Computed example of a mutant assay.
Amino acid sequence: MSDVRETRPQEYLPGLVLLVVLAGAATLVASALAGVNALLLGVFFGAIVANTVGVPEWANAGVRTRTLLLEAGIVLLGARIAVGELVASGPMVLGLVVVTVAASIALVEVVANRAFGLTAKTSSLLAAGASICGVSAATAIAGTIDADGESLAHVVATVLLFDAITLAIFPVAGEMLPLTGQQFGVWAGLSMFSTGPVTAAGFAHSDVAGQWATVTKLARNSMLGAVALWYAVRYADSESTGMKAILEGIPGFLVGFLFVAVLANVGVFSQGALAAIDTGSDALFALAFVGLGLDIRLGAMRETGIKPAFVLAVQLLTISVVTLGAVLLLV
């Protein structure tokens, strides 16, 4: 008989209360200090707790809901998106996404395997994580190519390290560079690794940047199915090829985001309902970003090793510089 115990609903409550307390504290402090972003401050507060006292055992279940909270917030964010604006700029952004993902995968595969001598499967996990959607993509591709758990753990630790680094760097860069909200959002959505840090960095700049960062990142996420199919064929895993790999690679929250966006743009929601949805989305993001901070470990560098970190550093520097030029020229 299995000894795995299901988490009871009431066990989520303490961790959720911790998220609410830290998010509330971040909101209060940010409201008292001009120029301080509450979402980034929530990440910072979470990181302080995680790297000092640590996340208490009693809070683990609730804190683990951070991914669900983030995805729910993204679904509701669809109500803020103007479809007409997306139609006008969408083809250009989609083209940038496709080119960036393809170039990023090729770059990481070559640098990791040939320059740093990493195994083919480790190189592929790094390529998927950096090019699509961070840890989620690396985990999905690991199942597709039957990678071992040690390689996946190494890649996950490296991606999380760079999530923390980019979350600190990109908002500062956004203030220094002559970028509009749309330009910064698209740039962050093309360059950063995971959905949470991208969304946080975008909204730290402005609401417009947050919306475009999320949309651009979702476009990248939507390519996971095609990339999984390509890797399945490459590694000859016949059970994962075909339409199944594509469908399994489409995130459910992407479908929800598009559904809510369509409903909002055809006038299904009243102004009061839209305001409530906005408030709900903001609250979910506030909680999710505290959870993101609670997942940051300053000791991650010791876990990652030097070679994977160098590979992602090369990828991040190259892709962010090239996409910045493309965004300034085209968006």
Rank of each mutant, 00 (worst) to 15 (best):
T216N: 06
A59M: 04
I169Q: 05
A82H: 11
G84E: 14
A50P: 03
T158G: 02
E6N: 15
A219H: 03
V208A: 14
Q183S: 11
S2A: 14
G54P: 09
V108A: 01
V268S: 06
W212S: 02
A219G: 14
N37S: 14
S151M: 04
Q183M: 12
G305N: 08
L68N: 12
F44H: 01
S151K: 13
S281H: 03
P91S: 06
F193S: 05
M1Y: 15
T158K: 01
L152V: 04
R234Y: 10
A173C: 14
G305W: 05
W230A: 15
L86H: 09
M243S: 13
G129W: 01
T100P: 07
G272L: 07
S2T: 15
L160H: 04
V266S: 10
V135L: 05
R80I: 00
I74L: 13
G272A: 11
R220N: 09
V172C: 09
L284M: 13
A88G: 08
L40D: 06
A26H: 10
G305M: 04
V53N: 05
M223L: 15
L167T: 15
A300F: 09
P91E: 09
T180Q: 01
L298D: 10
L96T: 06
F184W: 08
R302C: 00
G149H: 07
T119G: 15
E303H: 13
G256I: 01
I306T: 15
M1N: 14
F203S: 10
T195G: 11
S320M: 00
F269P: 10
Q271K: 12
L76P: 13
E57V: 12
P171S: 06
L317C: 02
G325E: 04
G210V: 06
I319W: 01
L22E: 12
H205V: 14
T318L: 05
T158R: 02
E71P: 06
G181S: 05
G242R: 09
A88H: 12
V101G: 02
A128I: 00
G272E: 12
